[in-house]
Design a protein around this nucleic acid. Sequence first.
DNA 1: ACTATGTCCTGCGAGC
DNA 2: TGCTCGCAGGACATAG
Length: 272
Amino acid sequence: MPELPEVETIARGLAKRISGDSIESVWLGPKPEPLKSSAAEIAAALEGRRILNVRRVGKHIVFDLEGNQNGAAKIRAQWIVHLGMTGSLLICPAESELEKHTHAVLQLASGRELRFIDPRRFGRLSVIDKFEAPGAEPLQIDFEGFTALFRGRKTPIKSALLNQKLLSGVGNIYADEALFRAGIRPRRRAASLTRDEFKRLHSSLKRVLKEAIRLGGSSISDYVDSNGEEGFFQLKHRVYGRDSEPCLVCKTRIKRIVIAGRSSHYCPSCQK
DNA sequence: ACTATGTCCTGCGAGC
DNA sequence: TGCTCGCAGGACATAG
């Protein structure tokens, strides 16, 4: 569910509120294990650890944990959370009632709890030494690097933007919004874009992501950050979720098509 | 190697 | 009111 701006908002909120806190004990939910590592592995790696920092990498939330002093060597660890479509991480008072679909609860030394809730169970938890995303960060990559990602690709530009091995963090909403702002149709073959079009796409993607971060992400259906607060970027959507509504620029009806199984929205007149 | 398609899940709103 | 259908912010495996 959450894309780069939502994950960034969640990670910043968590960093502010739980950095320095320690994980006293871990409860992992029953049978449907939404986990990549085994439950025992995760619990063992988390219990007793102090959280140094929380940050975003692509659509992943990375918890940097303090190394355990184990003889001479410090064992470092990172707890990685991917929220899938419907995952959320909430900081709650320990006494507050457990929400349905709660799959993990971390008791913190401060007396609060960090809870992982995920109705559709597409989310994943894992523990590794050093996490690295395969794709480039869209807010970091320069123009030459950006165009190089798409060289020789016949897939629609929309699909290429969603490919996490190329770019980390772009999802369905921001791909559609960036393509609209760049004036490019989602079905265009990636390699067919001109240099000028890549220029527009590169800058509109960054602009859209930055503005969305500023507004705390897009709240559609159930997205909330770690404080349970909603974002406001959905108010700025120009095409996403606006099927058949008039284009805000030219009044043409926004079209909805399916590309690689994902709904895609565009203005047939503004986008070429 | 690259691309398109199906699958994993639950919940919600639309339409009958 | 209650049912069924289609759809949902993601990522993988598989087949071609």
